[in-house]
């Protein structure tokens, strides 16, 4: 897409609003939906990767040190990782705090 989505006119759209640029969903900031933010305590983390498996957004990645951190551009703050992490390395706080 040449223009940002919010500037496209109806004549700019492909037939049937088909998207011809593979993977452009990555431009969409789902992090904007968040009302809660995760706080990650690496001291408690045992690097098991459970959070990585359960995150429905697929936004948790393993760092070079082996920790599992979330990309807040995409993290929707659903809290599933915090619920599943049994050593309780993740806590959820209100976004405005």
């Amino acid at each position: 897409m040449t223009k940002p989505e919010g500037e496209l006119t109806w004549k700019d759209l492909e037939i049937g609003s088909i998207i011809t640029e593979p993977g452009n969903a990555s431009q969409y900031q789902t992090g904007g939906w968040r009302t809660q933010r995760r706080i990650y305590d690496t001291n408690r983390c045992i690097k098991c990767g459970i959070c990585y498996i359960f995150c429905p957004e697929g936004c948790i990645e393993q760092t070079a040190e082996g920790y599992f951190d979330a990309n807040l551009f995409y993290c929707k703050g659903c809290g599933i990782c915090a619920r599943e992490c049994w050593p309780q390395a993740i806590t959820m706080v209100e976004e405005e705090e």
């Binding site: 496209l8 109806w10 609003s17 088909i18 998207i19 011809t20 593979p22 969903a25």
Partner: peptide, 30 residues
């Protein structure tokens, strides 16, 4: 013109937020 083809990936029926949905419907009406 734009068939499903593994060698030329496209997305059909994607999600359209409020900033583009009206344009898609105008295109359909026209």
């Amino acid at each position: 013109p734009l068939p499903l083809d593994p060698n030329k990936p496209i997305t059909m029926g994607a999600f359209a937020p409020p900033n583009i949905y009206t344009e898609t419907k105008k295109a359909q009406q026209a």
